[in-house]
Write a protein that binds this DNA or RNA. Structure first.
Lengths: 200, 200, 200, 200
DNA sequence: CATGAATGAGTATTCATTCAT
DNA sequence: CATGAATGAATACTCATTCAT
């Protein structure tokens, strides 16, 4: 069964991978199409056989990376029974994926947000998908009775997303020196119990 | 006692204010030094009498904005007795300031992170200051007994900073349509009590 | 007797015809070899089996179009007895041919002159052939006594060629809205009698 | 009395003159902005302080050259009494101007027609001005009785313009080897008396 | 003969920064 | 202090042409 011709020889992937490496090292704006081509071992013009322009490379990566993440989550979420378990799983997966390929994480966390017009949509889509997942989990938890009803869903989504995102970004920028995945459970505990000592 | 010469005629501030407006409207990278000069009503070259380069304008704004924020906080924190009150005050102030000048907030929240080398330091400094303040509050709360001891301080700092930051950014990008300050208390409640319904 | 291989399956003509359409619509310089290939229904590389390069396509068309024109003239000139009749026939044919296929005329009149090196020769050849024909007619007329002897042949040739050419070009660029052939006789009358009212 | 600042130091003219030389030698399309800059002794970027883009340089030259030509004609036409004298003057001036600066003539005659969109208008304007002048002369001649009434004005205009144009172009492309101005009167004679020997 | 993926040379244009006035 | 004309490095993108299949 033949795959799409333009992807048959994997040049699409080769270029994408090369671009991620270059973006991670140089930053999106300082990266040059020629650099990416060199890193990918192709001619400059070849880039444009597979991507519309420089920004499209980044957008494609973001789209694809998001997709893979949520597919993986969909797959693994079946293991979880309760909403809390699902939340732990989500955060864990996020941290694990980031730890597995720091370059991808760097681009996804930091460089993605630098571009513009075209990117805005990709970022929005990715964020929305994340928010939706969190939202479902929270609502499920409320039905189960494990999560309070007197919370503003919008705030909860933002708190969880932003915190996870920030912890990863910090780890990435610190050079990936420590064990990121180990922070998943403590962070989820914070989400669940808060920092207050009393019964509030 | 004479003020610094470069600030004597207020041209420094004029340029800074103009730059913030331009950055907010065009985005840092698409902004042009000429645009800023025109907006400020000075010649292009004049910019370089008051700032080292384009990036320095942004860095100066960030530095100054941070400074003002923490000065204001230092002033107002005296009103607060407990750590929890201080936390509420911090978040409230952050939201209020953002709401007061959305353009500044836009640049501070969004554009600041787009630049590089030079900015890295400014961002770090600003973050560190914020983290320090949060850290002090949390430790104070722990001594008071109002905040649990079994939390990782680093995670708490990041959670609080990232969540506040994200809520503001969302508000800014949404065009400042709703009342931001009203979200301060609910958000702090989330920090304190978490989302879990049980006694944990 | 086999025909030239490259013309056996008519692909040569197919490409040529496609090119003329593309050149006419886009202009020579904005036209792309890929566009021509697509219009002709062949692969990009196939073009180069039948033509040396982009310019050669245009040159070939010009050469061929000129040839056909002068063959047609040679054929029809037999009908004419006097030099004046031949001149009328030449101009008439030129106008009629242009009117029959405006796209070809557009390329021949306008685009032909845009290319360079290689084209210079083709244009020269085409012009020379035209000049030769006019020259023969004029000389014949001088022998017949119908055309003055005190004219500079070079100027006469240029006047006739340029005027016919210009009238066609104007018609082409105007979108072929009016009847071009009807202008042949009035134009020849101008050549013959001039604009002066007196007996000169 | 100060001239417009941007033209005060003649850089506008310097660049224009340099461009004409480069266009004449290399042809418009093969000419490079860098070449023009070098020839003018300025930096590449300086070109864009005085012209919008490459094509604007050519357009400016054409506009200016046309203007100068018609101003000169307006001035000198006062010397002429009859329509025929005016016609001789027009053709003479055209030939003389071309002979005076062959480079300008080369660009005006040959390169001008190569560009596109923007140029279309300039060419049209220049042609129209020429046609108008010829048209006025012919009509004046008809009123005087020196020019026949049974001619199509449109054809006469085209014949005269095209013939003059072609004779100049031939001279230019031949390298300006012979005396162009000497051809003015014989050519006008052709226009007036035609080539026919009989009393028509 | 035919294909079309790959090539890579070639270029207009922008804009942060400088410096003579 | 202020100006703004001049600089020139830096870069994404196109497209005619080739050649392995």
């Amino acid at each position: 069964m033949p795959v799409a011709k333009s992807k048959a020889n994997g040049k699409h992937e080769t270029i994408l991978a090369a671009a991620v490496r270059v973006f991670a090292e140089e930053g999106y704006f300082r990266s040059t199409v020629s650099q990416i081509a060199r890193e990918a071992g192709v001619a400059d013009g070849t880039i444009y056989l597979y991507f519309q322009n420089k920004e499209d490379i980044l957008a494609t990566f973001v789209r694809q990376h998001s997709l893979q993440f949520f597919e993986a989550f969909s797959e693994r979420v079946k293991e979880a029974k309760t909403a809390v378990e699902k939340l732990r799983l989500l955060v864990n997966l996020h941290f694990t994926v980031a730890q597995r390929d720091r370059w991808k994480a760097l681009v996804y966390q930091v460089e993605m947000r630098r571009s513009s017009r075209l990117m805005r949509k990709e970022i929005k889509d990715a964020l929305k998908a994340y928010h939706d997942v969190v939202g479902q989990i929270v609502e499920e938890g409320q039905q189960e009775g494990s999560i309070r009803h007197d919370v503003q869903l919008g705030l909860v989504k933002r708190m969880i997303f932003a915190s996870v995102d920030e912890v990863i970004t910090t780890w990435v920028l610190a050079g990936g020196k420590y064990d990121l995945a180990a922070l998943a459970d403590p962070l989820v505990d914070l989400f669940l119990k808060g920092i207050s000592s009393g019964p509030a």
